[in-house]
């Protein structure tokens, strides 16, 4: 029976959920009638999801889940969530890493290039530093590993990969990403997975670092 | 066998872990030799925890876990993590809610009053609004519930409660918290739990909203 994901198109947070569902086989459909900025402000929606944020998820038995990492957890399977509590803890660690160490820096650096917000040189330089640190941490961890937790793909890989999409797509040119070969190799493996391609399509790593265009 | 938590004293993120351990019975000791700003910059520490951040955790079998929510997951038990994948998803949702909806606003509002960072009037007003929204969401959810997920305390309650500590301690005076009686009731239940008291001691809700003192 259908499970519904409320989101707007090209939402990298929703990509995490849709990729997880590709691996687990969970039936998740996005509601074509959903209009971001309208539907999520209606009393019916707010009654289910008081914060009015997306992605938002309604399970087949009517349970409403907010926060993208939680929705991933709900549509995943045991393999994706981690085989043991300790593996699950590592999965939670990398999901938090994506939200705490990658996302703020990624948005600070990329959003001005997308025309979404104004550019601030100091913030952007700091964001580049933080992206380097996060990639360095990933790169070290992936020196001896194919995937982030255990031997198979988990929500850790799905979450970190989807949170890196904007960076690899818009600003991580060959020069910037050169020191992080293990991370690049892992990211390339991820975006070439059929289950990932089915959701995000063909992702091309950027050749030229996008700049803010005043 | 001992499991070690590296942190500085009075770290609310570490409180989450220590409270979870109180409930699960996990043996977790904080390393008395740890000096924040020194130990976490040594090569030995960075080799285990490349980001150099705390809290950081080393399990009895030598597994190193970073990010506080992940450490909570590792020291918890099945009851705290959630009985089913769907309950676990709800637990992950509230842990994310604490990090995404409460923490930014709490730091922005309270840290200037604690002398941790400079005051900005606009940011503080926005933070107050965000705190109201988060408390409203909690209050609605707790109208018909004793705890956040299921019938017993889980990591959802532990995480949200510890992330609210600064707010209830410094700025949520009787006037501000008046509209959120269900949330106040739940918070009072939580801080009076022996397992919570054992970690945070006696917490007194603030009488007078702390102000930034230039």
């Amino acid at each position: 029976s259908p499970q519904t994901l409320y989101t707007y198109p090209e939402n990298f947070r929703a990509f995490k959920v849709l990729v997880a569902a590709q691996y687990s086989g969970a039936k998740v459909t996005t509601d074509p009638a959903f209009v971001f900025g309208d539907t999520n402000k209606t009393p019916a929606f707010l009654n289910k999801f008081p914060l009015g944020k997306v992605p938002a998820f309604e399970s087949s038995d009517g349970r409403c889940i907010f926060e993208s990492n939680a929705i991933c957890w709900a549509v995943a399977n045991d393999e994706l969530r981690g085989a043991s509590p300790m593996d699950q803890a590592q999965v939670v660690a990398w999901m938090s890493f994506a939200d705490n160490e990658i996302l703020p820096a990624s948005c600070t650096w990329v959003f001005p290039c997308m025309g979404i917000m104004s550019f601030n040189k100091g913030n952007t330089e700091r964001a580049k530093e933080d992206v380097r640190k996060a990639l360095q941490c990933l790169n070290t961890h992936l020196l001896t590993r194919t995937f982030l937790v255990g031997e198979r793909i988990t929500l850790a890989d799905v979450s970190v990969c989807c949170t890196l999409l904007h960076l690899y797509q818009y600003v991580l040119d060959a020069g910037f990403r050169k020191p992080f070969q293990n991370a690049n190799r892992w990211f390339t493996t991820m975006i070439n997975q059929p289950q990932v391609k089915a959701v995000i399509g063909d992702l091309k790593m950027c050749d030229k670092m996008a700049q803010f265009d005043p | 066998s001992p499991q070690t938590l590296y942190t500085y004293p009075e770290n609310f993120r570490a409180f989450k872990v220590l409270v979870a351990a109180q409930y699960s019975g996990a043996k977790v000791t904080t390393d008395p030799a740890f000096v924040f700003g020194d130990t976490n910059k040594t090569p030995a520490f960075l080799n285990k925890f490349p980001l150099g951040k705390v809290p950081a955790f080393e399990s009895s079998d030598g597994r190193c876990i970073f990010e506080s929510n992940a450490i909570c997951w590792a020291v918890a038990n099945d009851e705290l993590r959630g009985a089913s994948p769907m309950d676990q998803a709800q637990v992950v949702a509230w842990m994310s809610f604490a990090d995404n909806e409460i923490l930014p606003a709490s730091c922005t509002w309270v840290f200037p009053c604690m002398g941790i960072m400079s005051f900005n009037k606009g940011n503080t007003e926005r933070a107050k609004e965000d705190v109201r929204k988060a408390l409203q969401c909690l209050n609605t959810h707790l109208l018909t519930r004793t705890f956040l997920v299921g019938e017993r305390i889980t990591l959802a309650d532990v995480s949200v409660c510890c992330t609210l500590l600064h707010l209830y301690q410094y700025v949520l005076d009787a006037g501000f918290r008046k509209p959120f009686q269900n949330a106040n009731r739940w918070f009072t239940t939580m801080i009076n739990q022996p397992q919570v008291k054992a970690v945070i001691g006696d917490l007194k809700m603030c009488d007078k909203m702390a102000q930034f003192d230039p």
């Binding site: 705490n100 820096a105 948005c107 997308m114 933080d130 | 960072m117």
Partner: peptide, 28 residues
């Protein structure tokens, strides 16, 4: 997509707050 992304709540100041918190507790 850009329009919707503009509504995302991102903690852009997180690095500022993290730095301040770290310095405060290092000095403590």
């Amino acid at each position: 997509m850009a329009l919707e992304l503009a509504h995302e709540t991102i903690w852009f100041d997180k690095w500022r707050v993290d730095d301040a918190e770290r310095q405060f507790y290092e000095n403590k």
